[in-house]
Write a protein that binds this DNA or RNA. Sequence first.
DNA 1: TTTTATGCATAATTTTCTTATGTATACAAA
DNA 2: TTTGTATACATAAGAAAATTATGCATAAAA
Lengths: 112, 112
Amino acid sequence: MKKSSLYKGCLEPILLRLLKDNGRMYGYQMTQMVKEITKGELNITEGALYPLLHKLEEQGVVETETEMNGNRMRKYYSLTKAGKKQTALAMDEMKAFMQSLEFIVNPKPVVG
Amino acid sequence: MKKSSLYKGCLEPILLRLLKDNGRMYGYQMTQMVKEITKGELNITEGALYPLLHKLEEQGVVETETEMNGNRMRKYYSLTKAGKKQTALAMDEMKAFMQSLEFIVNPKPVVG
DNA sequence: TTTTATGCATAATTTTCTTATGTATACAAA
DNA sequence: TTTGTATACATAAGAAAATTATGCATAAAA
């Protein structure tokens, strides 16, 4: 099993969290920030990132502004009002998920 | 996004952990234990469980003993020696994964 | 001038799961 | 008595979510 396969299914809430914390980000920036935060453990691939961002835009979760940085384009994403609501829900789910994982990976001994 | 999609990619290490803690288990028992531990949050489907157990057996990670309980069959799984090694590695990866998730979902404020 | 980094995008494929279906035993409820 | 629920296995078809590969383009470093 590939190490990073653990992250399968977590990409969307991770991106939502990044946008919630940082307000406005472009795709490449997200990949770099996650790489830094996870000390190189999670490298978001473009093939996963961009289609997901496009889907979130279609769903009205994020909105975009395209800007030029020198001669290079950057497409900035930020949460919509609906997106902020959805992010709050997603964070609750993440908490529950992480707690369940804790229970499984670090089970409390049954005190007899 | 479906709630349980967060668990994508985590099933294998979860099963390894169960076997590490409980020594010898049959498939249905695993589903029930996980359901209990996660307070109903994670319901492992048979379509995910059994093919994965079969794969682990092929790979020599687990070995099986089939027993009759009354008139009903139970196929007990336990970790092989190689499986125990792999489980140790998988648990290390899980720890790193969970810590990274913590960093993302609960970022430490930068103290200026 | 060739590699590495930045920055976007998409198609083909693979991995991993859900849903649906099948077989069979046991027990409780209607 | 037959209908639903629980136990217990198994597999096939399909969907979801990623990886890998490819493409375009600018910029800087080796």
